[in-house]
Design a binder for these strands. Structure first.
Length: 328
DNA sequence: TATACGTGGAG
DNA sequence: TCTCCAAGTAT
């Protein structure tokens, strides 16, 4: 199994900048944060710009967290930007500016969970670590258990299995991890697996069984009308704005014509805000809901609310809060 | 353990 | 169109 997968990987692996020989541990760490729940294609340009601007953890830590949120752009889950910024600060303070190679140290960093800690140890430092992401879980689920998809939550058995399959040598283990992950990403995909091109086809339990359908259905995330959509729309406006956004004007967009908070001297909102403003207009008819979303964003540290005196508001949005902007 | 948390491309 | 889903983490 090892030989088949690693041989396939050496011939078919994508050329990705965070896999280049001259990459830094920081570059790998940034990629791991960005790749959480986000496709490679969308990460690429943001990652390039991020590393150009902040080549080391200390460079990022020296900036306001709001700059991280802005540079995160439209990657999604912007709290990751905040956590990466906080992790960079922790690395600068506690680890002399070097990305730790110890899994326990990595796990202690904001935004670093079991997967990311193992991935950084393995891919940035060549350490032997049990890397278990959705791709690897799916490959094991099919080839070894005959199941189309792994269970929604990780099981102890899975973790034990992955550890048992891990090559003893550090370098071999690191390559095995990335190879299985790549196989899951390119061939053993969730929707339409390309079993004809799979190096494990001859020994795949699931394929032998005739590719039975999954016995359970993933939760399925709703989107339209959710707080998440509202948060996204608000943040899209704030992220692009060069000035603090007036909250009253933001609320007006929920009932009136789309103008105000982002309107320039022309009186017309920039085209890139149109979509977000349309969302606000369609969803936000309840001002309390918009305020609640603002409070949530502020509680997460993604935005900063200010009152008339320009002092950061600790209370609820709406109690004298006038503007919203990215945090310092 | 179940939920919340963004975004946009693919089928 | 519309549903599914992508290198998860925190609570």
């Amino acid at each position: 199994m090892h030989a088949a997968v690693i041989d396939w990987y050496r011939r078919h692996a994508r050329v990705l900048p965070w896999r280049s020989a001259d990459r830094t541990a920081w570059a790998v760490m940034v990629s791991e944060f960005m790749l959480q729940q986000t496709p490679v294609g969308r990460v690429l340009p943001v990652w390039e710009e991020w590393l150009r601007r902040w080549p080391s953890p200390a460079d990022l830590a020296a900036e306001p967290s709001g700059e991280a949120v802005r540079a995160w752009g439209r990657l999604g889950y912007p709290r990751r930007a905040l956590r990466l910024h906080a992790a960079a600060a922790a690395i600068t303070e506690r680890h002399g500016g070097r990305v730790p190679d110890d899994e326990a140290d990595l796990l202690a960093l904001p935004g670093v969970g079991a997967y990311t800690a193992a991935a950084i140890a393995a891919f940035a430092h060549g350490r032997r670590a049990v890397v278990l992401d959705t791709n690897i879980r799916r490959v094991f689920s099919r080839t070894l258990q005959g199941q189309a998809l792994p269970r929604p939550s990780m099981t102890v058995a899975e973790s034990r299995l992955a550890r048992a399959l891990l090559p003893a040598d550090d370098a071999d283990a690191a390559e095995w991890n990335v190879a299985v992950m790549e196989l899951g990403a390119l061939v053993c995909t969730a929707r339409a697996p390309r079993c004809d091109d799979c190096p494990l086809a001859a020994r795949c339990t699931w394929l032998a069984a005739g590719r039975p359908a999954a016995d359970h259905r993933p939760p399925g995330q709703t989107w339209a009308g959710t707080t998440r959509q509202l948060r996204g729309a608000i943040l899209a406006v704030v992220r692009e704005a060069t000035e603090p956004v007036d909250v009253a004007a933001l609320l007006r967009t929920t009932t009136g014509p789309v103008d105000g908070p982002t309107a320039g001297s022309s009186g017309k909102p920039p085209v890139r805000y149109r979509r977000a403003l349309a969302v606000l207009a369609s969803l936000g008819h309840d001002d309390d809901r918009v305020r609640a979303a603002l409070d949530g964003l502020a509680a997460d540290g993604l935005v900063q609310l200010e009152d008339t005196d320009g002092v950061g508001a600790r209370g609820r949005a709406g109690n004298g809060v006038r503007t919203v902007r990215l945090p310092d």
